[in-house]
Design a protein around this nucleic acid. Structure first.
Lengths: 288, 288
DNA sequence: GCAAATTTGTTCGTATGTATT
DNA sequence: CAATACATACGAACAAATTTG
């Protein structure tokens, strides 16, 4: 048997989808009809459909049927733009402004504050380069767009920042001007640069529940880790954000990029200047 | 039945893996033994294992057994660093140097050249903003590290660049100094900036075969699209690269980032200066 | 609002094929 | 070659979700 039957059936259905014979949103024939059509057992048909589900081509709805997926309009997170602006030297637009400009309604929970000790269970220990046992403050938020769960975000700060006067970090609740501006004004701490790492991995149980992902784990999670540094190169913050891969994409701008490209094409309304200051928004977004 | 049996079994096995009761590389009990242990049918055990496979926790080897996955050492692609350098104004280190410095052995096929007409089947049409029917040159490469398939990359250029004198773009084969430098010297075209977009999606058949991915499509593909612009804001190149998500991650540096962080921690050898010029390598890498 | 029909989801049993040791 | 272990395929029954009459 060179090619398993279930895979041959999946290939045939995939071809129909890719050629447009089956259009997005359209219902496939039922498992029983497909069983008769392909002269295979229902279980074999179901194996073929499972393969198409994993590849993101179809979805099943119990009691209804199997449907060709309709593409979600992705939300674009700009990780950067003009690095000077993104470094937190200026920039007064906020993440919320950015999202509104794209005709979407953002919302986020007030940060929950936690206190940890540097060590293996705290995911920030390596990045913040703190010795074992050093206190670390975490600020955690859930973020929504159009009431759809969009991202989970946790920032970690060395407790020494609070001892230096940035006491609001310890209080649960928003810091409207953003923590980058707050730390600059309160402690004189200037964010000189940052490094983002981007990985793709399977969701854990918390993420599956929050994002309402299918239980079979076929949707990946994109995790960004932003380590921010002051002018001495000391890490001052780690922000870990997770996004479901099915409704998010990321963008990075460098040098001179035309405004109409740097500013996503979704909603061209508002924002006269645009240009490369979208970075400030993303920075705002990434500093809980 | 609140929770299906196969999911309860998967949860139990996942717990054992996460608590270290089952260590990476360790073999699970066979399906028959698990069937007896959980008092379920072998098919139900297999459903549970399928779920763990999708979540990337275990892998099966026919004739051998089921094993807890061992983490792959990921290859880190730096999308940026110092934007001035990355813009192609200077930088003489190459992608190959970068990889060698990390004690890995890179290899890539000579570019295959193709000629297309702007229009819906050519994926560069939108980004290059060319009218329907305009000729486009593509250069496609397969790239390996340590003989493992690492990425597929295709760059698209407007044919007008060749007519302006950059004839080597049409010849299959390497352009050792990189196309950014070549275009600057030959046509006086300066790359003033670029925009990267990053999306995660399911693999297609070509990618599944090249990367030797499991046929069930559980490993996602990370696709980066880099649109480069000249000083007038005209798009001059689109480079599309695809990477399997199970062995790749990405990094972006902004502003001042300490050298020991900006330079990946894998192989600390060689490279005295390091700093933020790793960007030039990535840029080189991304210009076929 | 309820019952029936439809459709997918879960679980079992069984048989045979393929890969590895 | 034999034994072991996973892969494919079939058939059957009942459960759960949804729509329809």
């Amino acid at each position: 048997m060179p090619e398993p039957i279930y895979r041959a059936i999946a290939d045939d259905l995939r071809r129909q989808i890719e050629t447009g014979e089956l259009r997005p949103g359209q219902q496939l024939r039922t498992e029983i009809e497909l069983r008769d059509h392909y002269e295979a057992s229902r279980n074999t048909i179901r194996d073929a459909i499972k393969l198409l589900i994993t590849r993101g081509l179809v979805e099943t709805r119990p009691g209804q049927g199997t449907f060709v997926v309709e593409t979600i309009v992705p939300f674009v997170t700009t990780l950067s733009g003009d690095p000077q602006t993104a470094s937190g030297a200026e920039g007064d637009t906020t993440y919320t402004d950015e999202v509104i400009a794209r005709l979407r309604v953002p919302r986020h929970t007030p940060p929950e504050v936690g206190i940890h000790q540097a060590g293996s269970p705290v995911p920030a220990t390596g990045e913040l380069r703190l010795p074992e046992g050093t206190p670390i403050v975490s600020r955690h938020q859930q973020r929504y767009i159009d009431d759809i769960p969009w991202s989970l975000q946790t920032s970690f700060y060395p407790m020494s920042l609070i001892e230096g006067g940035a006491t609001r970090l310890l209080r649960a609740g928003d810091i409207p001007e953003g923590t980058v501006a707050y730390l600059r004004e309160k402690v004189g701490l200037k964010q000189a640069g940052y490094r983002d790492t981007i990985i793709v991995r399977a969701p854990d149980n918390v993420e599956t529940a929050f994002f309402k992902l299918p239980e079979d784990g076929r949707i990946s999670i994109i995790e960004t880790r932003r380590t921010a540094f002051d002018e001495q190169g000391t890490p001052i913050r780690l922000t870990v954000s997770v996004y479901p891969a099915d409704r998010n994409q990321f963008a990075v701008n460098f040098g001179e990029v035309p405004a109409e490209v740097a500013d996503p094409p979704s909603a061209a309304a508002s924002k006269q200047d645009a240009g490369s200051d979208a970075s400030a928004d993303a920075e705002q977004e990434l500093s809980t």
